[in-house]
Design a binder for these strands. Structure first.
Lengths: 212, 212
DNA sequence: GTCTATATACAGATAGAC
DNA sequence: GTCTATCTGTATATAGAC
């Protein structure tokens, strides 16, 4: 099926080519994406791609450096001060789940796992800028809260990772496996609320049965 | 390099062939595993494989039905009664992390994500028998604890998934991405203890700064 | 710079010789 | 049932025509 603009291909510079190729890579995966697919979509020439990026791996590396870094940049911003810890966790939780469930990140995540042997450096960058950074950012916030006496002392680095792990949880896995669609806004809010709740108070274990 | 038994290939029946092929699939991934790799390792003939399993997909499906089901069977056993909730969570947490970090499950997990479009039925089975079952088993335990008044009421299904999510967390992701080796026993124990701790009591948020 | 054709490599699947 | 050779399709990468 041709595109709706009536014509054929899209005239492209380097930027548009990267953007279009990124969409295809993140949608279909690295191996399943053929150079011809990209040509067909963007209208560029094969020789152009090879002279610009060397080979398929070079093209993909250029894309990830650009797109994934951009998508994950929201995690780097830690303008989370001025809120209660609960509000901060809720805000950060929403930011996390929105990023994780975005088409770009779902694609990056899948490709990172699939092609980690082929792109070890990219995978390292992805982890450090994404899940690792999220856990570290949270850890820093928790250390501060600890020093203010808002929470009990504990391993904040681990706790940060626990929060990130809960936000992903089985939901993210199901989406990654194609077993269900990404959650809508309501479901995301319920998830984040549940995670924040458990993170702050646990299940309020009382050790032995006791009426309340 | 030949094997240490001095000879060459291994004489195989159907069982040994499945076992050997499973090891290769789970180690290298589905796409990267060549039929010739399996032949080379097992010593069988190509025609034998194709007459037995039809094609590569059939061989792989037979393997997963056997091996993954076996590896995950430990999650189905819920002989966890007679312990405190904390001990039960600790036991179950160890069982979970040991399974997740086993070579077979790491391979299955990676292949499930990589090839979910090719094997939707297998992926469904994997999820239901693995992460889904783990969350559901925990949920049932939590419901019981709730009825005994040991914990506050809440969404036990979600809480079960949260526990599973924390056990995986960034650690499992790092291993999946090839960024680090699976944790040793000590690290696993520290992880499980930390997860159980947070799960039971959270960070004991007190809302506002207060000296203790 | 684009379009078409092709060299090359790889891997799944098949067939023949024994 | 095993070993070897081969058919076939696919996809990266290159080269030629314009």
């Amino acid at each position: 099926m041709s595109d709706a603009s009536g014509g054929a291909r899209i005239k492209v510079g380097r930027e548009q080519l990267l953007a279009a190729a990124a969409a295809i890579f993140f949608e279909q995966g690295y191996a399943a994406t053929r150079i011809d697919d990209i040509i067909e979509r963007t209208g560029g020439s094969k020789r152009n791609i090879y002279s610009e990026f060397g080979n398929k791996e070079g093209l993909f590396a250029a894309i990830v450096s650009q797109q994934a870094g951009r998508a994950l940049s929201a995690l780097a911003i830690d303008n989370l001060g001025g809120q209660s810890l609960k509000d901060m966790l809720t805000t950060f939780g929403h930011r996390l789940i929105d990023i994780y469930m975005s088409p770009v990140l779902l694609g990056v995540y899948r490709i990172a796992i699939t092609e980690c042997a082929r792109f070890p450096d990219l995978v390292r960058r992805f982890y450090d800028l994404g899940p690792g950074r999220a856990g570290a950012t949270l850890a820093a916030v928790l250390v501060a809260a600890q020093e203010r006496g808002e929470i009990r002392t504990g391993d904040c680095a681990m706790a940060g990772d626990h929060f990130v792990g809960m936000i992903r949880g089985n939901l993210h896995l199901q989406v990654m496996l194609g077993l269900r669609e990404p959650p809508d806004t309501a479901e995301r809010e319920a998830l984040v609320a549940s995670v924040v709740d458990l993170f702050l108070d646990g299940v309020e274990y009382r050790g032995t049965p006791r009426g309340r």
